[in-house]
Computed example of a mutant assay.
Amino acid sequence: MKTMVVGGSRGLGRALIEGLGKPGDRLIGVSRSQPKGLTLVPGTSLNWIEADLGEPVAAVEQIAAQTPDDLDVLIYNVGIWEEQAFSEQYSFLDDSDASIRKLVDVNITATLLLLKRLVPKLLTSSRPQLILTGSTSALRQSGRPEVTFGASKFALNGMADALREGFRHQKLAVTVLHLGYLNTDDPLSTPLQDAAQRGGGRLVPVHDVVTMVDALLHLSDASFVRELVMPAIGDDRF
């Protein structure tokens, strides 16, 4: 199986690179630079594509040119947010026009342009899978005020719906992961029970997300998971 993780250098993306795969599988990471000290599943191989999606047009061409002609799984784990997002200091009216444009470029424009180039490579697979990392901020009545970030994650849902319909006959499985607040401080090397304690039950360990994604990759081609909502047990918004 060939699996590409876009946004694979740190946090959840790094955990996916380190936690997925089985002997003989090939992983392809994408980020501005390749991280050091990665620990892979034994028997898997890794290639890395260095590109900065903050410059969408150039990055998309770089990634497309270096991606193999055939992919089985594309995990798109890219997203930035406002400088003061998820804090009491956040104010939409204080966001600069330039910061809003950049967020849209990274979260929406780059996503559309890259999917346009990589979906054909996925469709060579007997079971093509596209997994998009969304957010609980994209759910109705999410309880979050971040306007541009929320809009960009709502846009991801729209892309997923349209891709499912446009490529249903090619059996493209498109899953959106609506993730709550993540514990990205504890890597996979941290024991799960220790990672689960951080944040007092209000943070989801990356270990749990890797477990769920691994399960998605082991489904038959007769089914798929359309959306997966995964908040922390202590997240009182849910």
Rank of each mutant, 00 (worst) to 15 (best):
T133G: 01
L139Y: 05
S126D: 15
L122Q: 06
A162H: 14
V106H: 01
L122R: 03
A160S: 14
K121E: 10
F154Y: 12
T148A: 08
V106I: 11
L122W: 08
Q141R: 15
P128Y: 14
K116M: 07
A155N: 10
T136G: 03
F154H: 11
P120S: 13
D105Q: 08
N107T: 03
E146V: 00
T124H: 14
S135H: 04
D105Y: 01
P120F: 13
N157D: 15
S137W: 06
T109R: 02
R117W: 04
P128D: 15
P120Q: 12
A162P: 07
L139T: 04
K121F: 08
D105T: 00
R127Q: 15
T111R: 02
R117D: 06
Q129C: 10
D105K: 00
R140M: 06
L130G: 05
L139F: 05
S152Y: 01
E146T: 02
A155K: 03
L132I: 13
K116R: 14
G134F: 03
F149E: 03
S126T: 14
V119S: 06
K116Y: 08
I131V: 14
G143N: 09
G150A: 05
L123D: 12
R127F: 14
S137F: 04
N107K: 00
A155F: 13
L163C: 12
L123Q: 08
L103T: 08
A160M: 12
L156V: 10
A160Y: 12
R144H: 13
K116N: 12
S126L: 13
M159N: 07
L163F: 12
A138R: 02
V104I: 14
A160V: 10
L115Y: 11
G143C: 05
L114E: 02
T124C: 11
E165T: 14
G166S: 15
S126C: 10
V106W: 00
F149I: 00
G158T: 11
G158E: 13
M159C: 13
L163T: 09
D161N: 14
M159L: 15
P145M: 07
A138H: 06
A110L: 02
E146M: 03
E165P: 04
T148S: 09
N157W: 07
S137R: 01
I108S: 00
R140G: 09
R117P: 01
F149H: 04
G143S: 09
L123C: 06
R127D: 15
E165L: 15
T133K: 00
L113P: 01
T136M: 12
L163G: 09
S152Q: 05
I108T: 02
T111G: 03
A155D: 13
D161F: 11
L132V: 06
E165Q: 15
S125I: 07
L115E: 08
V147C: 07
L132E: 07
E146N: 06
K121H: 08
